[in-house]
Simulated scan of single mutants.
Amino acid sequence: MQLNRRHLMALTLALAFSSAHANGVSDKEIVLGTHLDLSGPTATGSAMLRNAMQMRIDEANATGIHGRKLRLVTEDNGSQPQMAVRAVQKMIRSDQVFALVNPFGSGTNAATVKMATDAGVVVFAPWAASAVIQRVSGNSPLLFTTIQNYDTTTAAGLDWAINNWGVKRIGVIYQEGPLGELMRAGINTAMQKNNLTVAAEAAYKVGDIDFSSQVARMRAANVDLIFSGTVIRETVGVMSEVKKLNWSDVKVLTGIPGRSSIVTNLGKDTVEGLYGIGGWKLHDPNNASDPEAKQFFADYRQQFGHEADENAANAYSYMGWFIDGLQAAGPDLTAQTFSEAMKNVFHQDFTTYAKQSWANNHVTPELVSIDQAQNGQWVQIASPTGNE
């Protein structure tokens, strides 16, 4: 009997799915893994992601999941793809994890997602450029992406800014690599929709801390809006240079990774007035009105002795969604039973703008708000809009 390509692919998937049952799943335990930036440029928030995941796991372990307890293995990726590759190889071969949950970084996930899914490991909620990760994985049925696509959300946010602020001369500062490529695609969509062209652009590399030349280029082009395709400390760096120039008549809008409470906490007065595209609800840890949010922040504070931010809340939320999938898969847990069950598991909690579901293993709907940093907090100035 000769096997054609379709048969070979089906056999490969079947072997991957069947091996997942042996990897990380026993009668009493399910082993999960994650890789976070615990020593690199975004280390400030990564410890909170780990803490929040463990907190949700502890809650699930109080009753168990079909007689099993969860165990989390955490590795440092330092925001470096090479470190992430070694970490994932170790978790697959030595720890034999069933799934990677909340792994952090676009470059680090792009370097590891196919390795993981090819080994039959579920990858759930990677903190990364979702469209890139889906493509790199070959649209694997074992990959579920929960971060809104940076291209579509950038397009929605920038389109709102153009139409509500009347800006015409737009400059772009973006990170080299998958994050910047997707944000740049979203910018192109918004610009074409409004018959505009980018007035100036400047790239930066992961790890850069000096943004004087990039902002100077924006100033020389006399832009009235800077789109800052940056993450945490880079967003603060861009705003710092804008303030040094006393450039008060320019607006700065950052994408989803930069609209973080870590940015307002670190930047303080430096980021006052910054605008951000938000993809999830924000709550004041000390004055949360939503009962579920209030409980989360109180529990986190009691266990870890400091305040959680919205990134910790999202890690907690995504872990909860993953656990709901484990429950729905039933006691006969394999990568295949999980993947099939998860497609019908909906999600809504204190972090979401609306009930979430899946479209081709990617979260839907993709809704974004426009927020502004005011007195050290993000304040919503435009209600959620986007891909419904």
Rank of each mutant, 00 (worst) to 15 (best):
L100N: 07
Y316A: 00
G279A: 11
S228H: 12
L158D: 02
N139Y: 10
M319C: 03
P81G: 14
R135T: 12
K251I: 05
L38M: 14
N311K: 07
M55F: 04
V263N: 05
L143W: 06
L49D: 04
G320K: 01
V263D: 06
R301K: 15
T264E: 03
S212T: 12
G33Q: 08
M53I: 00
D269E: 14
T74S: 03
T154V: 08
A52M: 06
R71A: 06
Q374A: 10
L333Q: 04
G267H: 04
A293K: 04
E241Q: 15
D208R: 07
M191H: 07
L100H: 05
L196A: 10
N265G: 09
T364R: 07
G276S: 05
S212E: 11
P285G: 03
A308L: 13
F211P: 00
K205Q: 15
G64Q: 09
S240G: 07
T42I: 15
S18P: 02
A185W: 09
R233Q: 14
K28M: 02
G67M: 01
D76A: 12
A328R: 06
S94G: 09
N387R: 15
T146C: 10
M1Q: 05
A14E: 13
S369A: 12
V215F: 00
M91Y: 11
T153P: 09
D37N: 14
T152P: 07
E176A: 12
N387H: 09
D290W: 06
